[in-house]
Each structure stands twice: as structure tokens, then as C-alpha cells.
């Protein structure tokens, strides 16, 4: 007796398995489209400039964008829940300022680095708590967080502070050789580690799955008995932690702390996440997609640098254009799905 075996399968579902596989592919479509775009841009670059087609150009994309990668990872968590974090750029700057000023004051990096991470995570947690328990829109709370962090930068110093600490300079200059004469920086290893950890958390822990459930339908997630409140606070904490790590990476990269650093970087991070295929309404997206999003932003810059005749502002215009295209695609996509 199997009462349900007669249930008519939905249309097109001639073979459940084949259909599933196809749909499985469709789930990754936005991210794959971004990857395709990246490869196409790389191919076009290689066609136009022979020197473009080198492993090092590719690796440089990672080296020059370690901090943005880490930021995009944190932002992915937040956006997956349907929230937004405007404070990340300012927290990067604050982390750099705290770092530079304490190092200048003679602190040991082994003290400074944990402290910076603690401040970033603490700020994020604080914003998450306000968002959850006072029910204020994430936009406004993280805007206040942005003002606060940026303001605190100025409280620390109005001028740029150079970083001369030997550990930091060695991190800045170190080259980790790969096959041939290819190399990466230690920052890349850290960024890759962050991405790997984030991937593991999002796809292999209950917390990660709750993040997705929250973005899919917060009310359902609550009724399913998931820890909605804690998760909501935690994603902002994760974003704060990532911002702090990004701040450290940016310090390694620039060897200074400057209050005006990372202006507008929150927009780059959001753009990378959206271009990487994460829906701004939450629930759908992949952290690896965000990494591809960062690479697309990076290659746009590289392209413009290689071209020589194109000016730097094309970067912004192209990013805005890509953002538009992906938002419109999302709109189309989400209309069909739900």
C-alpha cells in the first residue's frame, strides 16, 4: 500500500534524478555566470595584452585584494541573512589606526593583533545586539557603527601613522614562492584560510545552515525551532571579525594607518557579494561566489591599468554597471523562484 506513489510528479520531472541534477546546476547559475564573466575578461585581456596571460597576473589579483576578499566573506554572512553592514570600511580603518598607533607606542604585535580582532568582533557583536534586541534596521545601526568607527579613527590621530614594526614589514615584504617564479604574499594565505573557514562554517555547521534558513524565511526558521536571535547577532560579529582581519591585512599591505583609509570599501564589499551571486534579500549565495566577485572587481582594475588609455574612474562605472546587471538578473531570478 503506497498511497503517494500515484501522486503526479510535477511537470518536466520525467526523471527525478536528472531533473535534480539540472536544478542543482541552476542553483549555482548566478555564481557560474560570474565565473564565466571573469574567465571571459581574462581571455579578452590575454588576447589584447600578451603579458596578461601569466599566472602572476592572476595571483596578483589575490595579493592586491586580500582585505577585500576577507571583507566580502564577512559581508556574505550578513547579506545571506537578509541584512547589510555599512560599517566594514570604517572598521577596517579603525583596525589599521589602532594597530599603527599601538605599534608606534611600542606594543608587541602579539598583543596588538588579538586586541584589534577583539575590537572588531566586539563592535560587530554590539551592532548585532542592537539590531536584534531593539529591532532597528541594520542599515541605520551599521551606519551609526560606521560613523562611530570612523570618528574613533580621528580621535586616535588625524594624520597617517607609519608602521615600522619588523613583523609587519616582514609580512609586507615576504614572498612565498610557488612553482616557477610565481609567488604569493602571506596575506593571501590568511585570506584563503578565512575563506576556507567561512566555507566550512556556512556549509558544514548547523550555525551556517541557520544563516541560510534565516535568509530564506526568518519566521519559518523561528517556528522550526532554530536559534534565530543568536544567529542574527553572530553574523554581525562575524562581519566585525572579518573587518578587523581585513584591517590587519590592509596594514600588512600598506604599512600605515590612516583615518581616511578604506573609504567606500563597504560598497566594494557589497558589490563583490552581489556580483558573486548572493541575493540581497538573503538566503541564496555562496562565499566562493563572493571571492569570484572580488576577482571580477580586481580584474576590472587590472584591465584598466593595462589599457593605459582608460582612466581609473571606469572601474567605478563598470562596477556600478555590473551591479545593475546582476540586480536585474536577481530580480528576474527571484520572481521565478518564489
Amino acid at each position: 500500500m503506497s498511497p503517494l506513489s500515484t501522486l503526479t510528479p510535477p511537470l518536466k520531472k520525467s526523471s527525478a534524478i536528472g531533473y535534480g541534477r539540472l536544478r542543482g546546476g541552476a542553483r549555482y547559475a548566478p555564481t557560474l555566470a560570474t565565473l564565466g564573466l571573469f574567465l571571459a575578461m581574462f581571455a579578452v585581456g590575454a588576447g589584447m595584452y600578451p603579458s596578461f596571460l601569466s599566472g602572476q597576473v592572476l595571483l596578483n589579483l589575490f595579493i592586491d585584494n586580500t582585505f577585500l576578499t576577507v571583507l566580502a566573506v564577512g559581508m556574505t554572512f550578513v547579506i545571506l541573512t537578509g541584512g547589510i553592514d555599512l560599517s566594514v570600511g570604517a572598521v577596517v580603518a579603525l583596525s589599521m589606526m589602532v594597530c599603527a598607533s599601538l605599534l608606534q607606542a611600542g606594543w608587541n604585535p602579539s598583543m596588538v593583533i588579538p586586541l584589534v580582532i577583539l575590537i572588531g568582533g566586539g563592535l560587530g557583536t554590539l551592532m548585532g545586539l542592537v539590531i536584534q534586541y531593539f529591532d532597528i534596521q541594520p542599515f541605520i545601526v551599521t551606519l551609526a557603527g560606521m560613523f562611530l568607527a570612523r570618528g574613533l579613527c580621528y580621535v586616535i590621530s588625524l594624520d597617517s601613522i607609519p608602521v615600522t614594526d619588523p613583523f609587519f614589514t616582514s609580512m609586507a615584504q615576504a614572498r612565498i614562492p610557488l612553482a616557477g617564479d610565481l609567488f604569493i604574499s602571506p596575506g593571501v594565505l590568511i585570506a584563503v584560510a578565512v575563506v576556507a573557514v567561512a566555507f566550512f562554517i556556512l556549509h558544514h555547521t548547523r550555525f551556517g545552515r541557520t544563516v541560510y534558513a534565516l535568509g530564506g524565511n526568518e519566521h519559518s526558521a523561528m517556528l522550526m525551532g532554530l536559534n534565530v536571535k543568536g544567529t542574527k547577532v553572530a553574523v554581525y560579529a562575524v562581519s566585525g571579525l572579518c573587518s578587523a582581519v581585513a584591517g590587519l591585512l590592509f596594514s600588512f599591505y600598506s604599512l600605515s594607518g590612516y583615518s581616511l583609509a578604506a573609504q567606500g570599501m563597504e560598497l566594494d564589499a557589497i558589490a563583490a557579494v552581489v556580483i558573486g551571486g548572493t541575493l540581497l534579500t538573503g538566503g541564496t549565495g555562496y562565499v566562493l561566489g563572493s571571492v569570484v566577485g572580488v576577482l571580477v572587481l580586481g580584474i576590472v582594475q587590472t584591465f584598466i591599468a593595462y589599457d593605459g588609455t582608460l582612466s581609473s574612474w571606469w572601474t567605478k562605472i563598470v562596477i556600478g554597471g555590473l551591479l545593475l546587471v546582476f540586480i536585474l538578473l536577481q530580480r528576474l531570478f527571484s520572481r521565478k523562484t518564489y
Binding site: T281, W313, W314
Partner: peptide, 20 residues
């Protein structure tokens, strides 16, 4: 499109256009 996202496009691209 949600307002915040719709206007984000111009927020990002607009400064580039101004520089252009």
C-alpha cells in the same frame, strides 16, 4: 527593486561618471 539596492547602483557608478 528595493530602494536601497536600486540607489546603490548610482551611488557606486555615479562618482565614476562624475570623474569621467
Amino acid at each position: 527593486v528595493q530602494p536601497i539596492i536600486a540607489t546603490l547602483v548610482l551611488m557606486t557608478a555615479g562618482r565614476g561618471v562624475a570623474q569621467l
